[in-house]
Write a protein that binds this DNA or RNA. Structure first.
Length: 801
DNA sequence: AGCACGCCGACT
DNA sequence: GTCGGCGTGCTC
């Protein structure tokens, strides 16, 4: 008797455990751990992951047999199965959610229900119900309002319900035509064809010219012949037709010119050599590659990977939201060609699935991708690289709330290989670990071409205001912009819209339009002319007069990119502006198009939000302007200073990377703030020291770890009292060393009419905390569902909202 | 999560 | 009497 242990696709606490299933005789030896299977679960059939195979079970009296395997080979190997279990404990998530997070979305199951007719005797009523067929889908039955009738028939034994477990994935198939005749035969046929068969003749002539064994349907139809002519030739035995699976290639129409390794500078040489050693001796080590922008980190990545590939191993490269850095993908594709699989959010579900399968089938040796690419199913991993290590997008905000850096380190330990964390502005956590020698620090302090860092000037916008300049461009930025336009050099204008995006305020009474369901002000959307809530989606018309005092002195505060664009055209009517934000880059590929447009010199100014801060490298940019540096500085987040510093430094790094030297203008209302000051000087080390003092005083990371618990409910009192109870419980079970803040209202105290309270735990070493938090979930579970409470626990949170 | 089972109110 | 409301509890 063989029994499979299965984690079922039901993400709840009660079912977050292994269920035992009998393996039918015919699949013994075929069902393996890591495969997806369809299993009966209660009255339904659902998907599950096999985690093990054993010979007996404590449930032997009520064992059911599994229905069928959904994979031919396991989709999760032993390492990934173990990683999933660890991840579930570490982030307090369900095992099933962790397994699903490791696979492309296409592999998530899709469930469908059908009614099957059992009684096939002539019966007008049944004939009518089933519309003369043997089965009817649940959806159809629902539409036709015959669910009760069908349920009755099930009771009579005339029908039954079947559950289908389907995969979202569709393999893409194309028709291929194999040549079945030799030239002489084709020639004979060609001559015997009637004169009006011009299309068939075209194809045969094409075949005689090409002399290939196989032709795709596309190739043949390019001769101008219709499908019917091809079919005619298949009938005549010229071709045999077959279907083959093809990968959807997102880079189909892109050409990559092969690059060779560049000679390394002394500094690069020094940095890469310990990495190469670690690869050689196959041991685990985390390196923090701290290198200023333009110091050549990527070449170090490339050459380290080359070494890994030479050893027959594989590499993972994580980049933040990769669709935003097409230049990065190009560099990897150019060096390693088809060995590279790319996984990022810009791909369709099918494309992602295909790229993933290239990895699984060992057709790709290098994966370049966003956060989830850290789970690439390699079995002989030689290196994991995390570029722009400080980026917060490496933390997943939905369940499972994991950080790619932690997963990378876990996997590297398993594979005995190095992790490289690269950044010009490392996260405080990583830099502190490097200082404590937990990570091994490698430094690149000089730019490759020995170009000096751009000159940065910080402009105090309060002074501009005092001097009567009420425009969003300071006099300095204005004159420099004019200068660049004159010289035909390019400018990047960076607008940080986060923080306070455009909201509406009455200048007479100070009324600010709020969302009726959430405690947050509504955002003004010019293109739809609506006031919108970014949290619950509520929207309403834009008022002409103040709803409170009927004044018509209504102003829109905060500056959107559209508004800046309009202003720009007012001041510089001839400037050619490319605007990049969520509105202009929504469509697939729009991003690349806009960048190409700018790169080819068809525009003078690139105006955008966060997304233009990263990785762009254009030679002709000599001016970078930051319109308001401090919009995110006042967010209720202990990382606000760090984020501001990183952003300003990254943006500044976009200027003067090549022959032309660059200038940066940072406009701010708080020029004295240390993160603005040190970013202006590009002085990471002094920023680090200052910020470490702030973190120490506030007992924040990297001095303390954090766990954040958020409780929400429609009733304020209920929310507060529950949070209080939970806080007390936790307090009683951990040491006095830990600091507990709360219960306090969340920074956004109400979303979608639900009040939100939280409790923040700061601690250094609390081995009992995670088990305690798990107990909280377990203990309150039933009560929570019953009373409509929701609880979310975030270990090491990055979003404090 | 779904779904069945079960125990109480308004109808043919 | 029964249909159907949704509270409760289970799923190998």
């Amino acid at each position: 008797m063989k029994i499979a242990t299965v984690i079922v696709d039901v993400p709840t606490l009660g079912t977050d455990k292994e269920f035992d299933y009998l393996i039918p005789e015919k699949w013994i030896g075929i069902i393996e751990p890591g495969m997806r299977v369809a299993v009966p679960f209660g009255p339904r059939t659902i998907q599950g992951f096999v985690t093990g195979v054993k010979s007996d079970s404590p449930f032997s009296n009520k064992l059911k047999a599994l229905k069928e395997p959904l994979d031919i080979t396991p989709v999760l190997n032993k390492e990934l199965l173990e990683l999933g279990e660890w991840l579930a404990t570490d982030t307090l998530s369900f095992k099933i959610s962790c397994f699903q997070a490791m696979l492309p979305a296409a592999m998530k199951a899709k469930y469908e229900k059908r009614f099957l007719r059992i009684n096939k005797e002539h019966n007008p009523f049944l004939d009518d119900l089933f519309a003369g067929k043997q089965e009817i889908s649940w959806k159809k039955a629902e539409e036709r309002n015959i669910l009760p009738a069908l349920h009755a028939e099930i009771k009579f034994g005339n029908a039954e319900v079947v559950y289908d477990v389907k995969s979202l994935a569709r393999k893409k198939m194309i028709k291929v035509y194999q040549t079945m005749m030799v030239n002489a035969e084709i020639l004979t046929l060609l001559n015997s064809l009637p004169s009006n068969a011009s299309n068939q003749k075209k194809i045969l002539e094409f075949v005689l010219k090409q002399q290939a064994d196989e032709y795709s349907a596309k190739e043949l139809s390019e001769t101008g012949a219709p499908q019917s002519s091809i079919q005619a030739l298949v009938k005549k035995g010229v071709f045999s037709e077959k279907s083959v699976e093809v990968y959807r290639d997102p880079f189909e129409h892109k050409q990559f010119t092969r690059t060779e390794p560049h000679p390394l500078t002394n500094e690069q040489q020094e940095a890469i050599s310990p990495i190469l050693d670690t690869i050689e001796c196959e041991k685990y080590e985390t390196y923090l590659l701290y290198g200023v922008t333009g110091s050549g980190k990527t070449e170090i990545y490339l050459q380290s990977i080359q070494k890994v590939l030479d050893k027959g191993q594989e590499a993972i490269v994580l980049v933040p939201e990769i669709s935003l850095t097409p230049q990065m993908v190009d560099r990897f594709k150019s060096r390693f060609g088809d060995d590279v699989a790319v996984l990022h959010s810009g791909l369709s579900i099918g494309e992602k699935y295909d790229e993933w399968r290239k990895v699984q089938r060992k057709e790709a040796k290098v994966v370049v991708g966003a956060r989830s690419a850290v789970f690439a199913p390699f079995e002989n991993l030689g290196i994991i690289i995390i570029d722009e290590e400080h980026e917060t997008s490496y933390k997943q905000e939905e369940l499972p709330r994991y950080h790619a850096r932690d997963v990378a380190i876990y996997r590297a330990k398993h594979h005995h290989c190095p992790v490289i964390l690269g950044s010009a502005t490392p996260s405080l956590e990583s830099f502190a670990r490097a200082q404590k020698k937990v990570y091994h620090q490698l430094t690149l302090s000089r730019r490759m071409n020995n170009k000096e860092l751009p000159h940065v000037s910080i402009v105090d916008m309060r002074e501009e205001m005092r001097d009567g300049n009420r425009s969003m461009f300071s006099r300095e930025l204005h004159s420099k912009l004019a200068d660049r336009l004159e010289k035909k050099e390019q400018t990047i204008l960076f607008l940080n819209r986060r923080g306070h995006s455009s909201f509406m305020m009455c200048r007479d009474c100070g009324y600010v339009m709020q969302c009726p369901h959430c405690d947050i002000s509504l955002t003004f959307h010019r293109y739809t002319n609506e006031m919108k809530c970014h949290y619950c989606g509520f929207n309403t018309f834009v008022p002409n007069t103040c709803p409170e005092c009927s004044s018509n002195h209504i102003r829109y505060f905060g500056t959107g990119t559209q508004k800046v664009e309009e202003e720009l055209y007012k001041i510089f009517p001839d400037a050619r502006v490319v605007r990049m934000d969520v509105d202009t880059t929504g469509r697939k590929g729009a991003h690349e198009k806009l960048l190409e447009h700018f790169q080819s010199g068809k525009a003078d100014i690139l105006l955008g939000t966060q997304m233009i801060a990263k990785g762009l490298d254009f030679p002709n940019i000599t001016l970078v302007g930051v319109l308001s540096a401090d919009t995110m500085l006042h967010l209720p987040d202990f990382r606000a200073s760090e984020k501001t510093f990183q952003l300003l430094t990254q943006v500044s790094g976009r200027a003067g990377r090549h022959e032309l030297s660059g200038e940066v203008v940072i406009q701010t209302y708080t020029p004295e703030h240390y993160s603005v000051q040190f970013a202006g000087k590009q002085d990471y080390d002094r920023f680090y020291h200052q910020e470490m003092i702030m973190r120490k005083v506030g007992s924040y990371p990297p001095f303390y770890y954090l766990s954040l618990i958020t409780i929400s409910h429609e009733d304020l009192m209920k929310t507060v009292s529950t949070t209080e109870k939970i806080t007390k419980y936790i307090q009683s079970r951990i040491s006095d060393e830990a600091i507990i803040l709360g219960p306090v209202a969340s920074p956004i105290p109400r979303i979608n009419n639900r009040y939100r309270y939280q409790c923040l735990i700061k601690y250094k070493h609390e081995p009992d905390l995670k088990p305690t938090l798990h107990k909280v979930l377990e203990h309150y579970q039933q009560q929570f569902i019953k009373e409509g409470l929701t609880i979310s626990i975030d270990v090491n949170p990055y979003m404090m909202m």
